[in-house]
């Protein structure tokens, strides 16, 4: 499943994106979704409370995704169903598969938190491929690293997701 063409794109920036400024309500909705049906910690939704903390105001939960919906760049286009054909973004023919799932998620944080008003930039790269026989036949594992920095070029986190296609 792994071709020389695919190996040739390892480490190359596959996609970059810039978020719109993070809104307080983006953070609140994320926290509500993660903690449902319980009330999320007030640090994520109560500005009066958050101002009394060492953070000095509302911050986003570490795992918050500021790119979830529309981004400022690239400009929005008609939504297509996700297909997992990552290589096509670098002009490389993707492997044939019928299912795409996540098998590992790894994240490293700098300690810099995302806050309302922040504009986040992301860079996505394929960093590893390997193959393994599984119960659904030959499976292709693909690691995609997503690095996030803020408007001051401060590194926030790197999220590595290993996808398995079969």
């Amino acid at each position: 499943m792994i071709t020389d063409e695919m190996r040739g794109i390892l480490g190359k920036a596959m996609a970059t994106a810039t978020s719109f400024p993070i809104a307080e309500s983006d953070i609140r909705k994320w926290a509500v979704a993660v903690y449902y049906p319980e009330v999320p910690p007030p640090l994520f939704w109560d500005e009066d409370y958050a101002r009394t903390t060492p953070f000095g105001g509302i911050v986003a939960p570490e795992e918050f995704n500021p790119m979830g919906w529309m981004t400022k760049e690239p400009r929005p286009t008609r939504k297509e169903a996700p297909r997992g054909a990552y290589e096509a973004q670098l002009g490389v023919t993707p492997p044939v598969f019928k299912a795409n799932m996540q098998s590992q998620v790894r994240v490293t944080y700098s300690g810099v938190r995302m806050r309302p008003g922040d504009v986040i930039r992301s860079t996505r790269r394929i960093t590893d491929y390997f193959e393994r026989e599984g119960r659904m036949g030959l499976q292709l594992y693909t690691t995609i690293a997503l690095e996030l920095v803020n408007q001051r070029d401060e590194w926030i986190k790197t999220l590595e997701t290993v996808y398995v296609r079969f």
Binding site: Y35, P41, P61, Q104, R106, V107, Y109
Partner: peptide
Amino acid sequence: EHAYFHAMLRDWMGEAGRIVRVDMKL
């Protein structure tokens, strides 16, 4: 699932701690 790990860690640490790394295998 990854977010649930974060929530568990935050519930334990409160605001005194910071998350450095969270790795999970599915």
